[in-house]
């Protein structure tokens, strides 16, 4: 049974048709890479999954729970959208860390705010907060950042900031972790350290959707690849197959630009 099922998503911005009839599913523990040129709708698709954009048509279901259906207004109530977002984590291209908080505080902030809503928060406050801090620290350790926990974002390199952002997203224990071009804002030297972290997450069978321009990385790390062009899914399939022997002419054209040299 797939953990994520996306059906017939359509999205327009004014007269521009950004997404057309997007349908795909994702199995638990798998990594899906979305590739395609700029403006192909990859980022918009991720933003729809995270409820930052509202699709005009289609539906999104996680573990058989219908989270969004354009035809059913009951699924679009603002108050519930907030909870639904927690099924997904999102790592942004530009990190978007909170500058006034340390790395550790960036990771714990949302967890702490959410914990405050638990009925037993008052009685077990100290214990709950301690747990959250310890977990955040463990996550930072996993990202190789245990020595940077007390640093503010501006004191960290881009690669370190992005790894904090990944820890921050993981702290909410999302069902599906989404990456929106996680290395596009990084120097080539810093790209590697972020890709290594994502690779280790894949090895631990974290369910992920990765929008990326790193073709070799997508081929090695992703289980599935989805190639988009002009808001349409042109081709999807097993990662090596799509990269090594694409079936569609448009995919071949796109990939040849990456592997020409």
């Amino acid at each position: 049974m797939p953990v994520l099922e996306v059906k017939n998503i359509e999205k327009r911005f004014g007269t521009t048709h950004v997404l057309r009839d997007i349908t795909f599913s994702l199995e638990e523990g798998q990594a899906l890479a979305i590739i395609g040129s700029s403006g192909s709708g990859k980022t918009t698709l991720l933003r729809c999954l995270n409820f930052l954009e509202r699709p005009d048509k289609g539906s999104i279901a996680v573990r058989n729970e219908l989270l969004f259906d354009a035809a059913d207004p009951a699924t679009q109530q603002e108050a519930q959208v907030r909870r639904k977002r927690l099924h997904f984590g999102l790592v942004f291209q530009s990190f978007n860390l909170f500058p006034q908080y340390t790395a550790l505080e960036n990771v714990t902030l949302a967890c702490k705010l959410l914990a405050q809503e638990q009925p037993d928060f008052r009685t077990g406050k100290a214990c709950i907060l301690k747990e959250i801090n310890e977990r955040a620290y463990t996550l930072l350790e996993q990202m190789g950042l245990s020595e940077r926990a007390g640093h503010y974002p501006h004191q960290l390199s881009g690669g370190q900031q992005q790894r904090v952002a990944i820890a921050r997203a993981l702290a909410m224990s999302p069902d599906i972790l989404c990456f929106d071009e996680p290395t596009s804002a990084l120097d080539p030297e810093l790209t590697g350290e972020v890709l290594r972290v994502i690779r280790s997450l894949a090895e631990r069978r974290t369910t992920m959707i990765i929008v990326t321009h790193e073709m070799a990385f997508a081929r090695d790390v992703a289980d599935q690849i989805l190639f988009m062009d002009g808001g349409v899914i042109i081709e999807q399939g097993e990662a090596r197959q799509v990269i090594d022997s694409p079936r569609q002419e448009r995919t071949r054209q796109f990939l040849s630009r990456y592997f020409a040299g």
Partner: peptide
Amino acid sequence: PAGQYEAGQVLGMTRPQIFFRI
């Protein structure tokens, strides 16, 4: 930057939480 609001939203924070905490 809009990314600050969006980062808060994606982490499941409410509008007032985003305003006061971020």
